[in-house]
Design a binder for these strands. Structure first.
Lengths: 186, 186
DNA sequence: CTTGAAAGCTTGCTTCA
DNA sequence: TGAAGCAAGCTTTCAAG
């Protein structure tokens, strides 16, 4: 707890009961970033192992991870499944055009389909982008049918994924020394 | 849950977009799907807890998870980070148009940027879709600049995300009784 | 932040249906 | 073949320094 001042950090950090509702902007230090990097890459590593990788004791890592979780930096820890193996080989991005403004309650209900993995309103020549993963073309059609029933939806364009060359979680970017950046050389 | 037995467990980023060798089609039964559902929702649940949730003993769950991992159904287990908290509040989807065919070695090098999270070739009025998460507009511009240096890249359209209404991992779809599906009712 | 220690977990081995 | 029972050796996690 390096940002404890003398006033607010008297004896022990019993911050457990009190969940700080801050946007969690307390700057992450190098240790935090290394820990996050390890956890993104391979959650389920023991605290001891992470500790020896970043140069901290197991309880220290434990405390920091706890803090990072309650601060919302770590949202959840989850298994990443293979789409094909779970019977959903077809991945597609669907652009949805709407009249008026896009965020209708009706459109939000599309989230109830487990095939819909992401839903973002965007700036550009469409209003909303959906990432959907289905069993096949027919299931995608089923989804699109549901879309067109929604009032205000005027058009959709589906981009069916042919090959996925990269798919990874949000990176912790241990090297955050902007704007220097490793350029892919010739 | 430790898979690194030695301290020399050095890991490269290449394991993130890993493609499993086998389709791993051994049919998943109800237990498998329930276990997967639990692990997607909350990896790091103890096997004992999962066991009592799905009606199996801890060692039985352990065996099945091991099998699911080596079959490639579970690709990896990772922490999901909050983009803003790690200093990358700007999310965008970038459509890349190319002459000839898209999968150039040169384009693949874009994967080396930690800001690039996904890269798919698609069918539709563009050739490739990138999902990128950057510190801000300037960092996005930097990335686009790198794109346009690549021979064969003729155009790009960036869809900057304004709001994210849903963002979740591949779902295990416990109810896979197709094509019956819960329709979002009026 | 570190050390030390108790409770609980993972996980290989063996036994049982 | 696959699940339950057991037991050793870790891990988590709470004290206290």
């Amino acid at each position: 707890m390096k940002f404890c001042t003398k006033e607010n950090c008297t004896v022990n950090e019993e911050t457990n009961g009190v969940r700080s509702k801050r946007p969690a902007n307390a700057t992450l230090d190098g240790f935090d970033r290394k820990i996050l990097g390890a956890l993104v890459e391979e959650a389920g590593l023991s605290y001891a192992r992470i500790g020896e990788r970043v140069g901290l004791s197991a309880p220290a890592v434990f405390e920091r991870v706890k803090r990072l979780r309650s601060a919302g930096v770590i949202g959840s820890v989850s298994a990443r499944l293979d789409g094909e193996s779970v019977g959903k080989p077809l991945l597609a991005f669907v652009h949805v055009d709407t009249t008026g403004w896009g965020k209708s309650e009706r459109l939000m209900r599309m989230r109830e389909f487990p095939e819909v993995e992401e839903m973002h309103s965007v700036a550009g020549d469409t209003g909303m982008i959906l990432k959907v993963r289905t069993q096949g073309p027919q299931a995608l059609e089923h989804l699109l049918l549901q879309l067109y029933v929604i009032p205000g939806v005027t058009a959709s364009r589906s981009y069916v994924v042919l090959s996925t060359y990269l798919d990874r979680p949000v990176q912790a970017d241990v090297t955050l020394d902007w704007p220097k950046h490793p350029l892919p050389e010739e």
